[in-house]
């Protein structure tokens, strides 16, 4: 039965699924790394993704337009992280506690809203899911084509965002300032620049990306919203940022690795290999714990990550 997995068709399907599954966590992780490079540890990604998934789905359902749905998801993520930013940047409340609270807020609010809005319906309605968007010519290349170039538009966008975020963080003026804040905010403050303004921008961008990541799960994937459907992907995004050493390229690698495990377990379940499915489901998360243990020493977190800045 294991040999079934070595069939070319199955390999292609596992790899294509890897890319697809990586999309939402990649959005969230790239947003989160921007916030963390600015010294803000937004642990509320899970709840933010959930709100993005819900609002994106709701707006698509109400308007009939996926584009409006995506814009609404971005906005929902931005609003969630704005709440977070006010609490931790302006009010200097503990970032971990606030992040946990944001997760509870996202979970509770989306479930409540869903029940309140559709209480009189037997079944929660579905939306039209975004279709895949094969790239002309490139998608015809054998193996590579179906894996890389027969995906949804959001997937292309997420992968395109990797070099963009890298260029921003490491080759732009503002990126240098963001990284400076994560290492030593005072160094920017004494040059007369607002630390808080840049942190707000980074956190809100991170939240918007998480909202988009969440929306991938409804608008580009399942057509339905189910309570708590993000199901740990927000936490995985946090792990990916650490495993990727706060560098976009390595974050991409880490996202692909965890997604591959996820895709593989789906396929293993599909071919009916007799391993308890709970173990398969847990595989990416077990790998995440192992990755954290291995990366513990090698990684260099921003020095002031999670510490609120106060001018003494």
């Amino acid at each position: 039965m294991w040999s079934d997995l070595l069939n070319l068709g199955i390999i292609v399907s596992v790899l294509a699924a890897t890319i697809r599954i990586a999309t939402p966590v990649l959005f969230s992780a790239l947003g989160e790394v921007t916030a963390e490079r600015a010294g803000v540890y937004n642990m509320g990604i899970e709840g933010t993704m959930l709100m993005g998934a819900f609002i994106g789905w709701l707006a698509t359902y109400e308007s009939g337009s996926s584009l409006i749905g995506l814009a609404a998801a971005l906005l929902a993520g931005a609003v969630m992280s704005l709440i977070f930013a006010v609490m931790v940047i302006s009010l200097k409340i503990d970032q971990i506690v606030t992040g946990l609270a944001l997760n509870l807020l996202g979970s509770g609010l989306s479930t409540y809203w869903l029940r309140a809005a559709f209480s009189n319906m037997e079944k929660v309605p579905g939306i039209t899911v975004l279709r895949t968007w094969p790239v002309p010519f490139l998608s015809d290349i054998p193996v590579v084509g179906p894996v890389l170039f027969n995906q949804g538009a959001l997937t292309y966008l997420a992968f395109l965002l990797v070099p963009v975020i890298w260029l921003f963080l490491f080759r732009s003026r503002l990126g240098l300032e963001i990284r400076c804040i994560g290492e030593n905010p005072k160094a920017l403050d004494i040059k007369g620049h607002s630390v808080a303004a840049r942190q707000y921008a980074a956190v809100i961008f991170g939240g918007a990306m998480a909202g988009l990541g969440g929306a991938c799960l409804t608008i580009a994937s399942t057509a339905h919203f189910v309570p708590d459907m993000v199901n740990g992907r927000g936490w995985l995004a946090l792990v990916i940022v650490i495993a990727g050493g706060w560098r976009p390229g390595w974050i991409l690698a880490a996202a692909l690795f965890f997604s591959f495990l996820d895709a593989l377990q789906l396929q293993i379940q599909g071919v009916g290999i007799a391993i308890p499915y709970q173990i398969l489901l847990a595989l990416p998360y077990i790998a995440a714990i192992v990755a954290l243990m291995i990366r513990r020493r090698a990684s260099r977190a921003p020095a002031m990550l999670g510490v609120s800045y106060r001018r003494e």
């Binding site: 400076c180 160094a187 920017l188 040059k191």
Partner: peptide, 16 residues
């Protein structure tokens, strides 16, 4: 008030 992980140049130009 320096960033140890930045180069000398980056420390001087950040915020300019």
């Amino acid at each position: 008030v320096l960033v140890p992980t930045f180069t000398v140049l980056e420390n001087i130009i950040v915020g300019t």
